[in-house]
């Protein structure tokens, strides 16, 4: 250092070149980071009330399967994803309903209802769930998921509240 605060011409050019390089990198770099991670930032939590059938047609005390499809828009592609589960009417009371997802909590296979054994059995690893969805046997860490929000509309249709993700 020469001791003066005065920048020499050469130092000025070196610093300015560095600053210009920095500006260009930041102006293009920062938006590009957002550009690259954009799909991860998009909260895809979509909600909808899905009709799954007339309440009257669902027998009491017998797990009845239902299924519905939701279309997911991923960028420029639209994919249909299927969801399914079982409705168990414990009594004639339209509030006394248990709606279970058929997705096994172990690795996501679809469980089936076996009326003779009175259990849900997952075909992948022979996990067993009770009629209420509790784990009886096998590797699943949690009971079957429930659709806790449901309602019956004026026409007697049973609707469940569906939230993506």
């Amino acid at each position: 250092m020469s001791g003066s605060n005065h920048l020499s011409r050469r130092d000025f050019m070196k610093v300015t070149t560095g600053v210009i390089g920095g500006i260009i990198t930041v102006v293009i770099g920062a938006p590009v980071i957002d550009y690259l991670v954009d799909p991860a930032l998009r909260a895809g939590a979509k909600e909808a009330w899905i009709p799954i059938g007339k309440l009257d047609s669902i027998p009491i005390d017998k797990p009845t399967p239902f299924a519905f499809t939701r279309t997911q828009v991923n960028g420029w592609e639209r994919t249909g994803t299927s969801f399914g589960g079982f409705i168990i009417r414990r009594s004639a009371d339209p509030k006394d309903i248990l709606i279970l997802s058929s997705r096994c909590t172990h690795l996501g296979c679809s469980v089936n209802w076996h009326a003779d054994a009175n259990e849900f059995i997952c075909p992948c690893h022979d996990a067993k769930f009770s009629k209420e969805g509790k784990v009886l046997d096998g590797p699943p860490p949690k009971p079957l998921n429930q659709y806790t929000d449901f309602k019956v509309d004026g026409d007697g249709n049973l609707l469940i509240f569906f939230k993506e993700g």
Binding site: T17, I20, I24, V27
Partner: peptide
Amino acid sequence: PDSIFKDAVMALAIF
């Protein structure tokens, strides 16, 4: 830095 400085200014203008 003489030439590169000019190049950098030109690059910034283009950018």
